[in-house]
Amino acid sequence: MIGKLSERYMLDILEMLLLTPSPSGFCHEIMGKVEQEAARLGYAMTYTNKGCGVITIPGRRSDKVIGMSAHVDTLGAMVRSIKDNGRLRFTPVGGYMMGSVENEYCRVHTRDGRFYDGTILTTKPSVHVFPDARELKRDEAAMEVRLDETVRTKEDVLALGIGVGDFISFDPRTQIKPSGYVKSRHLDDKASVAALFGLLELIRRETLVPAYTVKLFITTFEEVGHGAAYLPDDITELIAVDMGAIGDDLSCTEVDVSICAKDSSGPYDYQMTSKLIELARREGLSFAVDIYPQYGSDASAALRGGRNIRAALVGPGVHASHGMERTHVQAITHTAALLAAYMQEE
Score class of each variant (00 low, 15 high):
residue 78 M to Q: 13
residue 125 P to F: 06
residue 131 P to I: 14
residue 130 F to Q: 00
residue 103 N to E: 14
residue 345 E to P: 01
residue 189 D to R: 09
residue 305 G to E: 01
residue 115 F to D: 14
residue 318 V to P: 02
residue 115 F to E: 11
residue 208 L to I: 15
residue 45 M to Y: 09
residue 328 H to A: 10
residue 312 A to H: 01
residue 126 S to A: 09
residue 11 L to K: 13
residue 105 Y to P: 03
residue 264 S to N: 13
residue 53 G to S: 12
residue 89 R to W: 06
residue 212 Y to W: 13
residue 12 D to L: 06
residue 281 R to C: 11
residue 293 P to E: 12
residue 318 V to A: 04
residue 92 P to G: 05
residue 156 D to I: 05
residue 329 V to W: 05
residue 331 A to M: 01
residue 167 F to Q: 07
residue 229 A to H: 04
residue 297 S to V: 05
residue 12 D to R: 14
residue 306 G to F: 07
residue 48 T to P: 12
residue 176 I to A: 09
residue 261 A to N: 07
residue 341 A to P: 09
residue 14 L to G: 06
residue 314 V to F: 00
residue 153 T to K: 10
residue 86 G to H: 04
residue 345 E to K: 07
residue 5 L to Q: 08
residue 278 E to C: 04
residue 324 M to W: 07
residue 309 I to G: 05
residue 189 D to M: 03
residue 173 R to G: 09
residue 36 Q to I: 14
residue 48 T to H: 08
residue 165 G to C: 07
residue 5 L to M: 14
residue 322 H to T: 10
residue 258 S to N: 14
residue 142 A to I: 00
residue 70 A to M: 11
residue 141 A to G: 12
residue 344 Q to K: 05
residue 264 S to I: 12
residue 75 L to W: 10
residue 25 G to R: 09
residue 20 T to V: 08
residue 227 G to V: 02
residue 25 G to S: 09
residue 22 S to N: 02
residue 146 R to L: 09
residue 219 T to Q: 07
residue 163 G to R: 13
residue 100 S to T: 15
residue 127 V to P: 14
residue 334 H to A: 07
residue 203 I to H: 07
residue 339 L to P: 02
residue 251 S to P: 00
residue 37 E to R: 12
residue 245 A to S: 03
residue 51 G to L: 08
residue 152 R to G: 15
residue 140 E to T: 06
residue 305 G to D: 02
residue 130 F to C: 01
residue 139 D to W: 05
residue 32 G to R: 11
residue 89 R to G: 11
residue 276 L to N: 04
residue 120 I to D: 03
residue 92 P to W: 01
residue 338 L to Y: 05
residue 294 Q to A: 14
residue 257 V to S: 01
residue 21 P to V: 06
residue 284 G to I: 08
residue 28 H to V: 13
residue 140 E to Q: 15
residue 326 R to E: 14
residue 107 R to F: 09
residue 75 L to N: 11
residue 147 L to M: 11
residue 154 K to A: 12
residue 307 R to K: 15
residue 91 T to C: 07
residue 229 A to L: 07
residue 77 A to M: 15
residue 35 E to T: 15
residue 37 E to K: 15
residue 323 G to V: 00
residue 345 E to W: 00
residue 105 Y to M: 13
